[in-house]
Measured scan of single mutants.
Amino acid sequence: MPVRRGHVAPQNTFLDTIIRKFEGQSRKFIIANARVENCAVIYCNDGFCELCGYSRAEVMQRPCTCDFLHGPRTQRRAAAQIAQALLGAEERKVEIAFYRKDGSCFLCLVDVVPVKNEDGAVIMFILNFEVVMEKDMVGSPAHDTNHRGPPTSWLAPGRAKTFRLKLPALLALTARESSVRSGGAGGAGAPGAVVVDVDLTPAAPSSESLALDEVTAMDNHVAGLGPAEERRALVGPGSPPRSAPGQLPSPRAHSLNPDASGSSCSLARTRSRESCASVRRASSADDIEAMRAGVLPPPPRHASTGAMHPLRSGLLNSTSDSDLVRYRTISKIPQITLNFVDLKGDPFLASPTSDREIIAPKIKERTHNVTEKVTQVLSLGADVLPEYKLQAPRIHRWTILHYSPFKAVWDWLILLLVIYTAVFTPYSAAFLLKETEEGPPATECGYACQPLAVVDLIVDIMFIVDILINFRTTYVNANEEVVSHPGRIAVHYFKGWFLIDMVAAIPFDLLI
């Protein structure tokens, strides 16, 4: 008679799926529990143990900040960024110097990925580790590398530091407007667009060049630039800015003055950032001319202004700041037409079709709590990747769950009947059967004279019903998954307890 339990259901295979997918890609990662103190490590794979030199037993239950890997060259700011990422709910990448158990130093890129439950609360953290440099290539500990984003994938490793954006290309926007319009339909740009040429040739750093990471940081200074100062900065030398009595002219307006920039070969870094931020506020060169004239017309309804409409929906549905990093990277690809469009465009503009998908598509409701890094690593669709929660398995109709209350009560009843059979069957065979043979035949009273025979008949009927119930009862397979398919249940029961239950259900007393 089957006594099969499996009270692990309803099970959740999400954690096993993450481990299996990460292991298949030869990654070095740990999984931490966000619900406990210090976000203790609950799993670390073999790749991480080989990377740091510690065994799994030495890593388990330690804080996922990996303070046991810190050393003299470990930056405090990087460690603080990892700790801050564990307090938030967004994906974050941090470069930090770690030390192995043998004392060797290596520069590592740590990717902190939160995993949320159905309520939107962070319950786990996945920390992925990628070695960037070994100890002989690690720089000085005073050099802070965590304020910069990861290198873009479309640049060669040897040319990542030679990417320079020439400031004269930004200063000569109005001069290039006529050349853009003359391109017409034969050019790649839309009317009114501004073409910015980027020099990728390796050259020595000069005062006129600005690194790509500095251009990325310009967006942080746009908020500090007032509207009046932006307007004066875009007017140009024809209309000098008016300053109040006793007030000095704005240095932001002076930063885009061609006369002032041409007199000296070098520009201050602050002026460069502010000038680029001011130019980015204009949607095209037409807006710059309109600002000089004193009238700013409404933005025209053409394809170039609607190019950012799908980007707005993608940004609203993005799951991490990696989408913004990807957008900034692609927006700086050289030799393309940049349409400086305000994100607050007309909502009635139709979304044009684009061959290049900048932001990841909208994630469906079932995966809105899973970050983009987890979705990318697992390579699963929205119909396959579940949320991290207890999910009731989908069972067929008329199927009994093996952990249901009805099955528990039924098993206790069958257990009592088995005990009765084990006690009274030998007793009936030894004593009652002998008395029946010696006594007179009682054929007239039937079952009324033999109450134990009636009980034995009921017990046999219950055993037959138990066999039928076992054909529709779920079970737990070797992978700790609840199986509810009727065919698989029948095959599993035939290979197991079916023969024993059938022999126990045969009414031998009635056959004798």
Rank of each mutant, 00 (worst) to 15 (best):
Val3Asp: 14
Asp342Gly: 15
Ile330Cys: 14
Leu378Asn: 03
Arg100Asp: 01
Glu91Asn: 11
Ser320Trp: 11
Met133Glu: 13
Gly345Arg: 06
Phe340Asn: 15
Gly149Lys: 12
Phe348Leu: 07
Gly186Cys: 05
Ile336Thr: 15
Leu200Gln: 15
Arg56Cys: 03
Gly187Tyr: 06
Val377Asn: 07
Gly192Ala: 12
Leu248Asp: 13
Phe22Arg: 05
Asp67His: 08
Gly184Met: 11
His147Ala: 11
Ser207Cys: 05
Lys344Ala: 04
Arg181Asn: 06
Phe106Val: 05
Ala160Asp: 14
Val215Ala: 13
Ile336His: 14
Asp342Ser: 12
Tyr43Leu: 01
Lys135Pro: 07
Ala32Ser: 06
Arg280Phe: 15
Ala57Val: 15
Ala293Pro: 14
Arg27Ala: 14
Gly6His: 12
Ser153Gln: 06
Asn33Gln: 07
Gly236Glu: 13
Gly238Arg: 13
Val279Pro: 06
Ser354Asn: 15
Leu170Asp: 14
Glu214Arg: 08
Gly192His: 05
Ile333Tyr: 09
Arg159Trp: 12
Asn317Arg: 02
Leu155Thr: 14
Glu134Pro: 10
Asp323Gln: 08
Tyr99Leu: 01
Thr270Trp: 03
Ala285Trp: 11
Pro150Ala: 08
Asp111Asn: 13
Val384Trp: 09
His7Met: 11
Leu127Ala: 01
Val138Lys: 10
Ala40Phe: 05
Ala83Cys: 01
Leu315Trp: 03
Gly6Phe: 12
Asp46Asn: 15
Phe348Gly: 13
Met137Ile: 07
Asp67Ile: 13
Ser320Glu: 07
Leu107Gln: 06
Gly88Ala: 13
Cys49Ser: 13
Ile126Asn: 01
Arg312Phe: 05
Pro205Asn: 14
Ala160Pro: 13
Gly192Phe: 01
Pro10Ala: 10
Glu130Leu: 03
Gly381Gln: 07
Ser179Gly: 09
Leu316Met: 08
Asp119Gln: 15
Pro150Cys: 06
Trp154Met: 15
Ala78Arg: 11
Val36Leu: 15
Pro297Lys: 03
Ile359Gly: 14
Ala360Asp: 15
Leu315Gln: 07
Ala350Tyr: 01
Thr305Asp: 07
Leu385Met: 14
Glu134Met: 06
Gln11Pro: 12
Val112Arg: 01
Ala172Asp: 14
Thr367Leu: 15
Phe106Arg: 01
Gly71Cys: 01
Asn257Glu: 08
Val41Ile: 13
Pro249Gly: 05
